[in-house]
Every structure is written in C-alpha cells, then in structure tokens.
Amino acid sequence: MQWTDEAIILGIRRHGETSVVAEVMTRARGRHLGLVRGGRSRALQPVLQPGNAVEVTWRARLDEHLGEFRMEPVELRAARLMETATAVYGVQAMAALLRLLPERDPHPHLYTSLSVILDHLHDPKDAGELFVRFEIAVLEDLGFGLDLARCAATGAREDLAFISPKSGRAVSRTAGLPYADRMFALPPFLALEGRAADRQSLEDALRMTGYFLHRHVYEPRGIEISAARNGFVQAAMKALGAARTMPEASSTGEKPIDILLP
C-alpha cells in the first residue's frame, strides 16, 4: 500500500541507532506515524523538526502496519519557530492537542488551521487568538463543541455575554446577569465577527477553553493538561504584559476554574 500527502511534522522518537519514528499531521489522513530510515542523519535531522511542512510518501504491506515514510521538505519553519517562547511552546501544545484525536482519523480543517497558526506564532496576540480557536475546534471534533451563536435561555443572537460552564452554551447579558459569578465571560472576539482580541479577552478565552478541556477530555482520561500549554499561555501573557501567578484549579465543576490553566 502507498499514498502521498502534505504533512506537518509534530514530533519524532528514536528507533534503533539510525532511524526514527516520525509523527505527522497530514491533510487527508489525519495524524499518522511512520518509520523514517536514516532519520538521525545530518541530511534528515533539519527536515524532521516540529512545525516543518513536508511531502510525505507512506508505504506498507498492510494498512494496519506502521509503515515507512519518505519525506521531501516543502517549508522549513523550525528555525523561525525557535525565535520566540510563544512559538516554541505553541508547536508542542498543538501537537499535544492533536494527539487527543484518534490516529489516522481525517481532520483536514485542523491541518489547515495548524498550518495558518504556525505562520503567526511569532506574534503573541495573533498566536493567542488563533490558539483559542484551535482548541475550540479540537473540542468540537472530540464531541464537546461549544455553542456560542445563540443564548441557551432565550435563543437570542444579540448581546451574548456569558458561557455556561455546565452546557458550554452562550447566554445573553439579560438572562445571565443574575448568575454572572458562576459563568465565564464570553470574549468579544469569539462573539462578534471582526472583533480583535485584547489582553483581557484572551485571558478569559484561555481560562474558558482550559476548563472545558480539563472537564471533558483530560480529567475523564486521567491525564494532565500538557505542560506545553502552560508554557504557551504564560509566554503569551508575559509578552502582552499580563504575567501573573495563577491559583490552583478546582475540579468540582460547580463554578468556572478561576485560572488560565487547569
């Protein structure tokens, strides 16, 4: 069996003395693993860096086999991605999110989003907003999508101001005001088309997505949220002048976690 596709390197691990097992996100076939013979050579090491775009050809006798990769470089971003902390942590954090999805399960929109975000990780403001949208897209694909288009109580589409921590649905200002202390603030850039994110709205958004990832994905699986996400958020907030020490998380689910990171 054989196929060729566009791919982005997510990571590698050593295999024997000279080879590696590469993990990539492909456009048409989702996250995929494959053996790269000679992957530790001087010629291939610069290519097999996280964030690089490649054309990959996979070969195996049977579909369920690990198979072998042959790779040709398309865009080598790795050197640029090492220039800022948001980029270094961002690549790792997005790879960790993609590992929550089943291997070989197609998610072409996530491939496209990943490619776009990798080109904007140097700017903390752009990186933060795009990263939040990426987390929301992953939650959607995992079956825990948020409904931010209309009020859960009234059905209204205007003046949406809160997000319910129980349902993940938007709530209008009028309906939600009596319960405001028990809900998340809806970041304006997620509610209004064309509205740019600012420091406070990014903080609110990252707190909200962190909570839903913790509640629906990490806690049920008995795993911790990735350290790379913590690093990304702290780097982004520091770059925007909002670095601070976060309190410990509560996992009761009764109120929103009052931090950016579970």
Score class of each variant (00 low, 15 high):
His216Glu: 11
Arg42Tyr: 01
Pro50Leu: 04
Asp123Ala: 10
Ala87Thr: 03
Glu17Ser: 13
Ala228Arg: 01
Glu224Pro: 00
Tyr89Gln: 03
Gly253Glu: 09
Gly34Ala: 02
Arg40Thr: 10
His214Asn: 10
Asp126Cys: 02
Ala153Phe: 01
Thr154Glu: 14
Pro247Ala: 12
His122Glu: 12
Gln234Met: 11
Leu98Gln: 11
Met82Leu: 15
Arg29Cys: 00
Ala242His: 07
Asp141Gln: 13
Phe232Gly: 07
Gly168Gln: 03
Arg215Ser: 12
Pro73Tyr: 02
Arg215Lys: 15
Glu203His: 05
His122Val: 08
Ala149Thr: 11
Ala95Thr: 05
Asp105Leu: 01
Leu186Glu: 06
Asp159Asn: 15
Met183Leu: 15
Lys125Val: 02
Met237Val: 00
Gln92Asn: 10
Leu146Val: 01
Leu213His: 07
Met82Asn: 13
His32Val: 12
Arg37Pro: 10
Met1Asn: 09
Ala239Leu: 09
Ala79Arg: 13
Arg99Trp: 00
Phe162Ser: 09
Gly155Asn: 08
Ala28Ile: 03
Phe144Asn: 04
Trp58Gln: 00
Arg199Asn: 01
Gly168His: 06
Pro256Arg: 05
Tyr218Arg: 07
Glu203Cys: 05
Tyr218His: 14
Pro108Ile: 12
Arg13Asn: 01
Tyr218Phe: 15
Asp198Asn: 10
Tyr179Pro: 01
Thr174Arg: 14
Lys238Ser: 10
Cys151Asp: 13
Tyr218Trp: 12
His214Glu: 14
Met183Phe: 10
Gly222Trp: 13
Gln49Thr: 14
Leu202Arg: 01
Gly30Phe: 03
Glu248Asn: 03
Gly128Glu: 00
Pro102Met: 05
His32Cys: 04
His32Pro: 00
Leu98Gly: 02
Ile225Asn: 03
Pro256Thr: 08
Leu110Val: 03
Ile136Thr: 01
Met71Trp: 01
Leu114Cys: 06
Glu83Phe: 15
Phe184Arg: 08
Leu10Gln: 06
Leu186Lys: 06
Arg99Ile: 02
Thr245Cys: 02
Leu97Trp: 06
Gly210Tyr: 03
Asp119Met: 06
Val132Gln: 00
His214Ser: 13
Ala96His: 11
His15Lys: 13
Glu103Arg: 14
Leu100Lys: 10
Pro178Ser: 04
Ser115Lys: 05
Pro46Phe: 05
His109Asp: 15
Arg157Tyr: 07
Ala235Cys: 12
Asp5His: 04
Ala227His: 09
Val217Cys: 07
Leu100Ala: 08
Ile136Arg: 11
Gly90Lys: 01
Ala228Lys: 11
Tyr89Ile: 01
Glu6Thr: 09
Asp63Thr: 04
Arg244Asp: 09
Gly16Ile: 13
Val138Asp: 09
Ala43Trp: 08
His109Gly: 12
Gly16Tyr: 08
Ala249Asp: 01
Leu146Asn: 00
Arg59Ala: 10
Val74Ala: 11
Thr154Leu: 11
Arg104Asn: 08
His107Ser: 04
Leu118Glu: 02
